[in-house]
Design a protein around this nucleic acid. Sequence first.
DNA 1: CGGACTGTATGATGGTCATCGAACACAGGG
DNA 2: CCCTGTGTTCGATGACCATCATACAGTCCG
Lengths: 114, 114
Amino acid sequence: MPEQPGARSHRPAPAHTHPDDVVLLSALSALADPVRIRLIRELDSRPDWTLSCSDFDVPVGRAAKSHHFTVLRGAGLVEQRDQGPKRLNRLRREEFDARFPGLLELILREDDLG
Amino acid sequence: MPEQPGARSHRPAPAHTHPDDVVLLSALSALADPVRIRLIRELDSRPDWTLSCSDFDVPVGRAAKSHHFTVLRGAGLVEQRDQGPKRLNRLRREEFDARFPGLLELILREDDLG
DNA sequence: CGGACTGTATGATGGTCATCGAACACAGGG
DNA sequence: CCCTGTGTTCGATGACCATCATACAGTCCG
């Protein structure tokens, strides 16, 4: 298996799920959370691979934030790549939209939450 | 206030919420449940106002079923009308789709759940 | 090496919610 | 008027989940 240049690490790579392997209920459950919606929107507002987990401005601690990213990975919404001590993020726009057309756009277009 | 012909009743009319007054998070939370997805699909498979609550084939008791319909009404997904002892249902396709374009179609098109 | 930073794992806690059983309310028909 | 069918309400229960504090594991740099 080829590795990313300079990405060899003794840290286990985060477990990802491709959107094609995500069932509808998992996607909806992942999106039905105000913190995760904020993470997705903040992620969308910046270029790919420019935000590490700690850069996000959500009112929860590190542990909860890490948990939310695990859920987002499992729902095929976010891809993560380790770079040094940081874990950079990317929103899987095309892949997720191909699996659930229009859903991500709905999340990003809305301006209110509750 | 005009009443439906033959619809006068001593029973309180169920509380409805128009999709325009539903926030994104409420809609997603209402849809992130396997029983409610089944109710919506079964409702879609038949003409409007032809299914009473007890006609739906979901593996829960009457109390839980009634609760689920309350959630669906509150999310602007279902409209209910009393007719005799029965409470007939209608899926609010157009109104809900105008508020959350593509979302209902996504629920109805999928064939798997989990 | 030893600190500073980043993220994960673990255990505990509290809240929300889906479910049930039973009681209740209403409508319609013998 | 009872009886049946339909749906709601209420209280209780159990499961799930978001959160936290703490401890731990890597990575990088001086």
